[in-house]
Amino acid sequence: MHFPLALLYASLMMAPECTSLPTMDESIEKNIHSILNIVKMTLVHIKLKTKWQVLSQVEVNSPTIDGLTGVSNDLGLLDEELQSLSTEVLSQIQADISCLEGRVRSLALMMDCPIRNKPGAQAREHLFPISQHYEMLAKVQHYLENLHLNKDKLMVC
């Protein structure tokens, strides 16, 4: 009867990392890793949708990456813009950005960063929807590439 109890005790002592709760630093690191994976996945989705054909020729302005509060706000704006275009072509990218914005918002809250309310959508007329889609994809691509290059900013508010 004492043998199973001793075996259980020994197995628990040999694997302390499996039995303890993650520290705050480990949780933050895991969230950042998850965010960067979503960024990479979304860039692949953009590549599959466009095969990078036109996006390198489209000039877009992208906000600077300055910390979690700004990134959360920027992703919220991109999400709203993608929703306003709402087409089958952009649905996967919009879902990715929405997920990414939620992860960044969660990380910011975990780190006690101030978070703004989600921005409202700005109504825009879509005279040339195909051009608008490429412009939007270029905007998302540029922002995500910038975010990946400045991933250290995910550690500050």
Rank of each mutant, 00 (worst) to 15 (best):
M110D: 03
Y143W: 02
E145C: 05
M110W: 03
L127Q: 13
L109K: 06
N117W: 13
S131V: 08
A121F: 06
H133A: 08
M111S: 01
V89D: 00
P129G: 01
L149S: 11
L137I: 04
Y134M: 09
I93N: 12
L90W: 02
R105W: 04
Q132C: 07
E135W: 05
I97E: 06
H142S: 11
I130N: 09
Q141W: 01
Q132F: 14
D112Q: 01
P119T: 06
K151Y: 12
I97T: 11
S106T: 03
I97A: 04
A123C: 15
V140K: 07
V104R: 05
S86Y: 11
L100A: 09
E145M: 10
P119L: 06
G102R: 01
E145D: 14
R124H: 09
K153C: 12
Q92C: 11
N117V: 08
L127D: 03
M136Q: 05
K151G: 04
G120P: 07
I93M: 04
M111R: 05
Y134N: 12
S98H: 15
S86Q: 15
L137W: 10
E135H: 10
C113R: 02
H142W: 10
V89H: 00
M110E: 08
A123R: 07
Y143A: 03
D152L: 09
S86A: 15
D96C: 08
M111C: 02
K139L: 14
A108S: 01
V89K: 06
L107E: 12
S86W: 12
Y134G: 11
A121V: 10
G120S: 07
V140D: 09
K151W: 10
C99G: 01
D96K: 11
A95T: 14
H126Q: 14
N117T: 03
A123K: 14
A138K: 01
I115N: 00
Q141H: 08
